[in-house]
């Protein structure tokens, strides 16, 4: 039977393209994870081979767990990522609501100003940020990182969320006002649930760069007690000798939390990305 909208060759071609892309995207992750379970010689001799009885080794993970405070680093990364994520989503959504819902002088200008951060990388301001953190005594605290990441994530969040919030029916908000809901209740109870897919999209796009960032932890919080996972993993990369087992093991472990967060958001994410296209 032939369906009107699809043909077998075309379906095969589409899936071939998608599969190829998936393979390319997953390959580095695969190599990292596979080699994390091999001994040092095997990593260099046959980097693509799966671990077998001879080459299997947990030495990397042992090094990671015995050396340094990896549990602490994980905790730091988690705290920074989750706290920044909450700040970005909460404040971003509130700003987006104000921009899309209320008419006030300078509304457009404010929107442009808040979106400017999308085009100007925050790292350009590193020196000034460092000076501010030193002046306020926040160097080597997680607070410093949370503040910087919140600032970094807000522009895109506001941009995306205000577009989505414009699509929420005015009548619905007005019905809420007539029923006596406060503006906060309208925001939290009516609008936020309706833009949930957009929130998930923003969450993923915000979370991954924060988790992976090396720059700001290195500059603002390099102290032992505030190290993040990515920074912690660097201690195995020496100028002359690199403990590849440990590096790969640390990176493999670092994938897990993002993966978990991603899976939490992904159902919503897919709806968010496709909602414009397939409405």
């Amino acid at each position: 039977m032939r369906a009107a909208r699809s043909s077998l060759p075309r379906t095969i071609a589409a899936h071939a393209v998608l599969l190829t892309y998936t393979l390319i995207a997953l390959f580095p992750v695969f190599v990292v994870v596979v080699n994390a379970f091999k001994n040092r010689r095997a990593i260099f001799n046959e980097p693509l081979a799966l671990p077998n009885a001879e080459t299997f080794s947990m030495i990397g993970f042992e090094t990671v767990t015995s050396q340094g405070n990896f549990l602490l680093y994980f905790q730091n990364s988690m705290i920074v990522t989750v706290a920044s994520l909450i700040c970005v989503l909460l404040f971003g959504a509130m700003a987006a609501f104000a921009l899309s819902e209320y008419r006030f002088k300078g509304n457009t200008l404010m929107g442009l100003y808040l979106a400017l951060g999308i085009m100007i990388p925050i790292r350009l301001g590193t020196v000034a940020i460092l000076q501010m953190m030193v002046a306020s005594g926040l160097v080597n605290t997680l607070t410093a990182l949370i503040l910087v990441y919140t600032a970094q994530g807000l522009p895109l969040a506001i941009f995306i969320l205000s577009e989505f919030m414009r699509t929420v029916s005015d009548d619905l908000k007005n019905a809420g006002r007539i029923d006596g809901l406060s503006e906060y209740k309208i925001f939290f109870r009516l609008v936020l649930p309706l833009v949930r897919p957009a929130l998930a999209t923003v969450a993923v796009f915000t979370m991954i760069p924060i988790w992976n960032d090396l720059w700001f932890p290195l500059i603002l919080a390099p102290g032992e007690s505030t190290k993040t996972v990515t920074l912690g993993a660097q201690m195995f990369i020496g100028q002359f000798v690199t403990n590849w087992n440990a590096v790969l093991a640390a990176l493999s472990l670092a994938i897990v939390p993002v993966l978990v967060l991603y899976l939490i958001f992904s159902r919503q994410l897919i709806r968010g990305i496709t909602s414009g296209a397939v409405k």
């Binding site: 619905l172 007005n174 019905a175 006002r177 007539i178 029923d179 006596g180 309706l194």
Partner: peptide, 17 residues
């Protein structure tokens, strides 16, 4: 609006989903 003693019905129904 809530204190004006009015009620409103909208074209798009505007029910809380």
């Amino acid at each position: 609006p809530a204190k004006r003693g009015i009620a409103m019905v909208f074209q798009t129904y505007a029910l809380y989903p």
